[in-house]
Design a protein around this nucleic acid. Structure first.
Length: 586
DNA sequence: CTAGGGTTAG
């Protein structure tokens, strides 16, 4: 009789808690919980599990953990709910810890557990564990489960093992939006933008229905490619879908237009947003910064500071400082840094922010002060810091400090060929031939060309890619012919090839030939052939633009009266009438 | 009862 009464009571609690869970009613749930404690009966496992689920969904992790720890025995659901609680709050190591405990306790994880725990396996350590979890998985029939499979392939993709991710994807017996999005975004996040685009098109042809997360992924790929025409097409497609308002998607669109060179579109989207996150602001600020629009950066930053609901974060400050630097507003940037340094609850300053200050000081010609600043800052200088100082020394022709910066840089990154080029440029322009010879030898000895330079241009929604001295393009003869024609004509206007940009030991004639083969020039020449009169030429390069190619483009813009927009790894160079928006400092 | 994919910076 008493036992039956208890069961009825528990059934009643169960119904109450189920309602609380579905309505995320934390207060009511807590009340039920308190009532249960007061009755002094031992609640069964399923009731305790419900409580954990409720607390996890309401993000009360400590309450959930309390109930979990008090359980006399645990079922898979309580383990999984608890792990998922840590996972969704971003506490990956706690989630992984709990999973290990679960295995040790002899509990059998199910497909829910695996799908959850694999999302925590990022980073080097996480991947180590994830790899072991994968081998554990093979014993269960879960590997080809869509949820587990997409979580698993995402883990491999984020670890940079994209081929393994692809294999898991292909092996899935059923593919859905999420697994497709995971692999497409995986390619995009690894910078394999063309692969992402190719797969996206194939899956779409096969009839897959994508959602807004997939579009975010594909926009990332299009941003990387700076494929403006493609991007506009995806945008109009997204509009036709009449999706509800998703901030993340809008943020992606802002970034895509800015990386494709169309800031006006970015701003229009930004202005029309009904709600913005800090990422929306950052994307817009970075856009202005990338285009060298210092004034716009500072104006927008002032608007942001007037907002009460959105606080700047470390990325914001990075965008603002580098915006001041790219926009030639050194004093303003230094002032903002000092303000942040003194602000009580300001953003936390990292070494990247200090690198921006080195850049600001260097640009304004205060190379010695920059060196002093480096020696006093609370971080051990890294390659970015020395690289920035070296760049400043090259621009301001300071060989003394340049030597210090260059040698420190070569100590840290002896394999990076680009570093030798900048140092050699400095020595060459200062006439230090002995030092120049030494740098060349060092480079031959130690440098490894990790990322080959390439440039591309989008013409009528097709991307044309060029490597140095590339002769794979079907219209290569025409292109080489055009480059020679350009060179001859701009020489008449004063262009002198910058042989300092060639570090190979070859004769002068050979050097000039190598310079003319640079991928930027090939893409530029092709643009002039293939694009209609008057249309700006938009060239994209995967690395920093070379000094000679920059100069070459300036002369072409002047002699041919053509706007040239060049996006390199760091920023845009908008070149009109022989002048570049970067002010020749980059 | 418990589950997977997403945006800025470097």
């Amino acid at each position: 009789m008493a036992k039956q009464g208890l069961e009825v009571k528990f059934k009643f609690y169960d119904e109450l808690l189920t309602q609380c869970v579905s309505q995320r009613a934390l207060r009511e749930g807590q009340w039920v919980h308190a009532h249960m404690i007061k009755t002094h009966y031992e609640p069964p496992v399923y009731l305790r599990t419900r409580l954990i689920v409720l607390y996890v969904k309401c993000e009360c992790l400590s309450d959930a953990r309390y109930v979990f720890d008090e359980m006399p025995e645990r079922n898979v659901v309580s383990w999984t709910a608890m792990i998922s609680g840590y996972a969704r709050m971003g506490h990956s190591s706690e989630a992984l810890n709990l999973f290990v405990q679960m295995i040790r306790s002899g509990a059998e994880p199910n497909e829910f557990t695996f799908a959850t725990v694999l999302t925590c396996c990022t980073g080097a350590f996480g991947f180590c564990l994830g790899w072991q979890i994968h081998s554990l998985l093979v014993k269960h029939p879960f590997e080809s489960h869509v949820f587990v499979g997409s979580s698993l392939l995402d883990m491999y993709a984020k670890a940079g093992r994209i081929q393994e991710a692809r294999d898991i994807f292909e092996a899935l017996p059923e593919k859905d939006v999420v697994s497709c999005t995971a692999i497409i975004s995986g390619y995009a996040q690894q910078g394999l933008d063309e692969k992402a685009l190719e797969l996206f098109r194939r899956l779409r042809m096969e009839g897959m229905n994508f959602n807004y997360v997939t579009y975010v992924g594909i926009l990332t790929a299009l941003s990387g490619l700076a494929a403006l025409e493609h991007g506009r097409q995806v945008h109009s497609h997204v509009l036709r879908l009449k999706l509800p308002f998703y901030v993340v998607l809008q943020n992606s669109l802002i970034d895509m237009y800015s990386k494709c060179g169309n800031l006006a579109y970015s701003r229009r989207i930004f202005d029309n947003m009904s709600e913005r996150t800090i990422i929306s602001w950052n994307a817009m600020l970075v856009g202005y910064s990338r285009h060298g629009l210092g004034k716009e950066v500072v104006e927008l930053f002032e608007l942001l500071k007037a907002e009460i609901t959105t606080r700047p974060n470390s990325v914001t400050l990075l965008a603002v400082l580098s915006g001041c630097s790219h926009g030639g507003m050194e004093h303003r940037g230094l002032k903002i840094f000092d303000e942040m340094l003194n602000e009580e609850d300001g953003v936390e300053l990292g070494i990247e922010h200090y690198a921006c200050v080195v850049d600001l000081l260097g640009r304004s010609g205060q190379v010695e002060r920059a060196l002093q600043f480096i020696n006093q800052m609370p971080f051990k200088p890294n390659a970015a810091i020395w690289g920035s100082l070296l760049g400043a020394c090259r621009f301001h022709q300071n060989t003394n400090v340049g030597k210090i910066a260059g040698n420190s840089l070569l100590d840290i990154e002896p394999e990076n060929a680009g570093n030798y080029v900048v140092l050699a440029n400095l020595y060459a322009s200062a006439g230090k031939w002995e030092e120049l010879r030494r740098v060349r030898e060092l480079m031959k000895e130690k440098a490894v060309v990790k990322v080959p330079g390439k440039s591309w241009i989008e013409v009528e929604q097709t991307l044309h890619t060029f490597h140095a001295s590339d002769n794979s393009h079907p219209r290569k003869e025409e292109i080489f012919q055009k480059v020679r024609e350009l060179s001859a004509r701009i020489k008449g206007a004063g262009y002198v090839p910058d042989m300092g940009c060639v570090l190979h030991d070859v004769d002068e004639e050979q050097k000039e030939k190598m310079l003319l083969g640079h991928s930027e020039k090939l893409a530029l020449a092709f643009g002039l052939i293939a694009e209609p009169q008057g249309k700006p030429i938009r060239v994209i390069k995967n690395l920093r633009i070379c000094v000679d190619c920059h100069n070459f483009a300036k002369f072409v813009s002047q002699v041919y009266k053509r706007e040239v927009s060049l996006r390199d790894k760091a920023r845009f160079h908008r070149i009109v009438g022989g002048k570049c928006s970067c002010g020749d400092y980059w």
